[in-house]
Simulated scan of single mutants.
Amino acid sequence: MKLIIGNKNYSSWSLRAWLAAKQSGLAFEEIIVPLYGEGWESLKRDDSGLQASSGKVPLLWDGETVVWDSLAILEYLADKVGRERFWPKDETARGMARAMVAEMHSSYHTMRSEFPMNIRKRFDGIQPSATTRDEVVRILGLWAEARARFGSGGPFLFGTFGAADVFYAPVVSRFISYGVAVPGFAGAYMQAVWEHDWMQAWIEASENEEWVIEQYDSAPAIG
């Protein structure tokens, strides 16, 4: 099994797929394709897998099977190893976790644009737009509900690490990079995600990358 991902410092969708692959427990080969680097355009044209995914990462190869899109990758892996490895056993908790993952997958466009993932950087004095503030409040509200209702079994959203944490891990990184003020319960959750062994491995690798994408390394212009 091969997982094609982008730069670890910048690619939030790659982080999700990589965490999902780690969560599956299956062995996989990691292949990094530097985004926007030399040869990126030709690679998108010439690589059959990237053609299947419209030139986007992440991309999972498993024998004859090609799966693109981070949520599709997570669900494919869940089917292979057992869905309980990713999703809460309790039906009500599982329903909320699925809804939160789907919302993260399809929403928060303004926050994504204003706060692109950059694990290595810390930006001070960033004033987000009103839309981004609303999106942050929405995320914190979902975190609070999940933790209050279903988080008694551990430090993560539904107690133990699972699909919801996989999908909100890049948000944790964004909140840290852009100095987003959060209440205590959210800070504790973010610390648990940030200190998770897999996240630490990803963070260390991102810090050792040589690639720099200038447009994501300067403070965002908001307003």
Rank of each mutant, 00 (worst) to 15 (best):
V137F: 06
M111H: 03
L19A: 05
R85D: 03
A97C: 10
V136H: 00
Q23V: 12
R16C: 04
E41P: 03
S53Q: 03
E145T: 09
V137M: 07
R138F: 05
V136M: 11
G37S: 15
V67P: 03
M96C: 02
S129C: 02
R112W: 04
L26M: 14
K121Q: 15
Y108G: 10
E29F: 02
G49H: 07
W87A: 07
G82P: 05
I126C: 10
A78G: 15
L26G: 04
E114N: 01
R120Q: 04
P58F: 01
Y36P: 09
L77T: 04
Y108V: 03
G125I: 05
R133A: 09
A27Q: 09
D79I: 11
R147H: 01
I139T: 05
R147D: 04
S48V: 12
R45L: 14
A99M: 13
V137I: 07
D47F: 06
D134H: 07
I119L: 15
G37C: 10
L59W: 00
W143Y: 15
F115Q: 05
A20N: 07
R94K: 13
P116D: 08
G55L: 06
R138W: 07
Y76V: 04
I119A: 08
P34H: 14
H105Q: 09
E30I: 09
L35Y: 01
R120E: 06
K44R: 08
E91Q: 10
A97P: 00
L15K: 14
L59H: 00
S107L: 02
M96Y: 06
G125K: 04
A97G: 05
I126R: 06
H105W: 10
W87G: 03
E38Q: 12
M117N: 03
L71K: 12
G55P: 01
V33Q: 15
R147G: 08
W61L: 15
F86D: 06
G37A: 15
V66I: 07
L19R: 08
R83E: 12
M100D: 03
Q23D: 07
S107A: 15
